[in-house]
């Protein structure tokens, strides 16, 4: 399965968007994806506790949420719209 990881704002200075590939799985928990993000892009580790995550454009606070092939995970630093 493939999962697209999106970064924004200050996170872009540490990593552009990238794709995580996981062999032999059809779905996986969000917590595992978080581990794989750190493994793939160690520079993002220091932000992981201070950002939100969105799965397919919806916030997710559930580490057990099932992530499927071609899902889009966004790393959301603190927002500042308006």
């Amino acid at each position: 399965m493939q999962v697209k990881i999106l970064t924004f704002a200050n996170l872009k200075e540490y990593s552009n968007d990238f794709t995580i590939e996981i062999e032999g799985k059809e779905s996986i928990a969000l917590s595992i994806i978080k581990q794989k993000i750190i493994a793939e892009k160690p520079a993002l580790e220091k932000f992981m506790n201070n950002i939100a995550f969105a799965v397919n454009q919806t916030y997710s606070k559930n580490d057990n949420q099932e992530i499927n092939d071609l899902d889009e995970i966004a790393l959301i630093p603190p927002v500042a719209g308006g």
């Binding site: 704002a9 927002v79 500042a80 308006g82």
Partner: peptide
């Protein structure tokens, strides 16, 4: 609506001031 937009909508701003640049 404005109050809530500031809390949760994924929009960011990069300020350029006379003292430098930074993400707000």
């Amino acid at each position: 609506i404005m109050d809530q937009i500031k809390i949760s909508v994924p929009i960011w701003k990069f300020e350029m001031s006379e003292n430098g640049t930074y993400w707000v």
